[in-house]
C-alpha cells in the first residue's frame, strides 16, 4: 500500500436516513486496505459525527478523503449557515438542534467534542452565511 487513495462524496442534506453512508464507505475502504483497526474506528466515528452535522445543520455538503499509509485526511465542506462561535460550539452539551432533531437521537451537543477526541488534528474554518470547512487528520 504505497499509493495515495482519494475519494469524493456528496452528502444529501434532505435525507436524514442516508446520513452516514459516506462514513460507512470510508470505514470500509480503510478496513479493506488494512489500516490499523483503532485508527479505522476513530476515523469512522469522527467522520460520522461530522457527516451528521452536515445533514442536520448545513443542508448537506461534500467530503474529500485522502488516505496514505501514514494518515487519513478528511475535508468536509458545506455552504450552510456557518458557526457563530466555534469555541462555544466545541463545548460539550452546546447544541442549537431543534427538538425534531433530538427526537432522531442527535442534538446532545457532543458531536464536535467527540470529533476532537477521536482525531489527531481538527481544524474549522467558518463564516456566517457562507459555510464551514472542517479538516480532520487521523494518523495510522
Amino acid at each position: 500500500m504505497s499509493e495515495v487513495i482519494k475519494q469524493h462524496y456528496i452528502v444529501d442534506g434532505t435525507d436524514f436516513t442516508r446520513a452516514g453512508e459516506a462514513s460507512g464507505k470510508i470505514k470500509k475502504t480503510l478496513k479493506d486496505i488494512g489500516f490499523p483497526p483503532q485508527a479505522v474506528r476513530n476515523t469512522a466515528i469522527a467522520v460520522y459525527e461530522a457527516e451528521i452535522n452536515l445533514v442536520i445543520h448545513a443542508g448537506g455538503g461534500e467530503i474529500d478523503v485522502e488516505i496514505t499509509p501514514e494518515y487519513v485526511k478528511v475535508v468536509l465542506t458545506d455552504h450552510g449557515p456557518g458557526i457563530e462561535n466555534v469555541e462555544l460550539a466545541m463545548q460539550e452539551g452546546y447544541s442549537t438542534a431543534p427538538d425534531r432533531i433530538r427526537a432522531l437521537g442527535f442534538g446532545a451537543g457532543m458531536g464536535l467534542p467527540n470529533i476532537k477526541k477521536y482525531s489527531d488534528e481538527m481544524d474549522i474554518q467558518t463564516e456566517l452565511g457562507v459555510g464551514t470547512v472542517m479538516t480532520l487528520k487521523i494518523n495510522a
Binding site: F16, T17, R18, A19, G20, S23, G24, R41, I45, Y48, E49, I52, R102, L104, G105, F106, G107, A108, G109, M110, G111, P113, N114, K117
Partner: peptide, 28 residues
C-alpha cells in the same frame, strides 16, 4: 437514545440498548 452520547465512549465488544428506531442506530 442519544447517539452522540453513545459515540462519546468506545466500549469493547459492546451491546447497544436503545428505544430509538431509525437507521442511525445501526450506523452508530
Amino acid at each position: 437514545d442519544m447517539m452522540s452520547d453513545v459515540l462519546a465512549y468506545v466500549k469493547e465488544q459492546a451491546v447497544l440498548l436503545t428505544g430509538l428506531v431509525n437507521p442511525q442506530v445501526v450506523r452508530t
